[in-house]
Structures are given as C-alpha cells and as structure tokens.
Amino acid sequence: MAKNTFREPERIAKQKKQRRKIRLASWLNDFIGLDRLFGEDNSWPIRHIDRILWVTFLMIVYIGLNHNAERLVRRIQRTKLQVDELRSQATVLQADFNKSGKQSEISRRVAALGLAESQTPPHKIVVKSNEH
C-alpha cells in the first residue's frame, strides 16, 4: 500500500528561493555594511532590502514620468502660442492681399507711375470670316 508523504520538490524550491533572498541580503550587508547602519539586532531592513529597492525604483520611474509629462505640457503650450501667432499673421497677410487686388487700390498704385484709368469704354473688335 502506498504511503502518503509531502512533496519534496516544492519544499526544496521554496528553500532555494528563500536562500536566494538571504544571499542577496547578505551580499548587500557584506558590501555596504547595512548591519552597522541599522544595528545588529534590527534585521528588518536587511531582510526586506529587495522590496525596498523595488519601491525605490518605482518611485524614481514615477518621478521621471512626472517630469516628462510636465515638460510635454510646457512644450504643447509654447506650440499653441506659436500657432496662434502664425494664424494671426496669416489672417493679416490674407486681408492685405485681398485688399491689394481691388481695382481702387490698383488704380491708386499705378497713379504714381502716371497711368490712369480710361474714361472711354472699350471698343468691340469684330472680324468678319472672309477677312481672315
């Protein structure tokens, strides 16, 4: 008859994972000397150093994204101001162009050259088909 036992691979995997965390904490403790910083009896920061580093990384990413968003908003506002200025310049130029094409404006400009509008109406030229 078979005997019920615990599965060994899961327990071993859990121990290896825990050893890996302890190894990271012990390496940082050896490299930086965290036990001197926090005290030998206070091992909480050393045990949770991976979570502390993860939260620190997330905060740095958050701050970076916030700065990027603010810079983008400033750039958009600057571009909107430039677009408004260019639109107003285009409106003024279009109004000047439309005004310069009027007959009264053209006659005023050519008067300085000594040209004037004809007072007689234009003559119609008729060509007969046999004169051709």
Rank of each mutant, 00 (worst) to 15 (best):
G39P: 02
L34S: 04
L24K: 02
H67N: 11
S118F: 15
L28F: 01
R75C: 00
R23G: 12
K124N: 11
I49A: 06
L34Y: 05
Q119D: 07
W54F: 06
G64P: 01
R74Y: 05
T120G: 15
E131M: 12
R74I: 00
L34D: 05
R51K: 11
A111M: 06
S107H: 08
F31N: 14
L53S: 01
I52Q: 00
H132M: 15
P45T: 08
R47Y: 11
Q82I: 04
W44F: 00
L34K: 07
G39C: 03
K80E: 02
I52Y: 04
K102S: 12
I125C: 14
I106M: 10
S129G: 10
S107G: 06
F97I: 15
N66L: 04
P9E: 13
M59D: 02
L24S: 08
A25H: 03
L81A: 06
E8W: 14
L24R: 04
L53C: 01
S43I: 09
A13D: 10
L34Q: 04
E117V: 07
L86Q: 06
S43T: 12
E131Y: 11
Q103P: 13
R7Q: 12
S88Y: 11
S104V: 13
R7D: 13
L58E: 02
E105L: 05
A25K: 02
Q119W: 06
Q89T: 13
Y62I: 00
R74E: 02
A2R: 01
R78Q: 11
I49T: 02
A25E: 07
I46E: 07
I63D: 10
I22H: 13
A69N: 01
A25S: 10
W44C: 00
N130H: 09
Q89W: 13
T120H: 15
V61A: 07
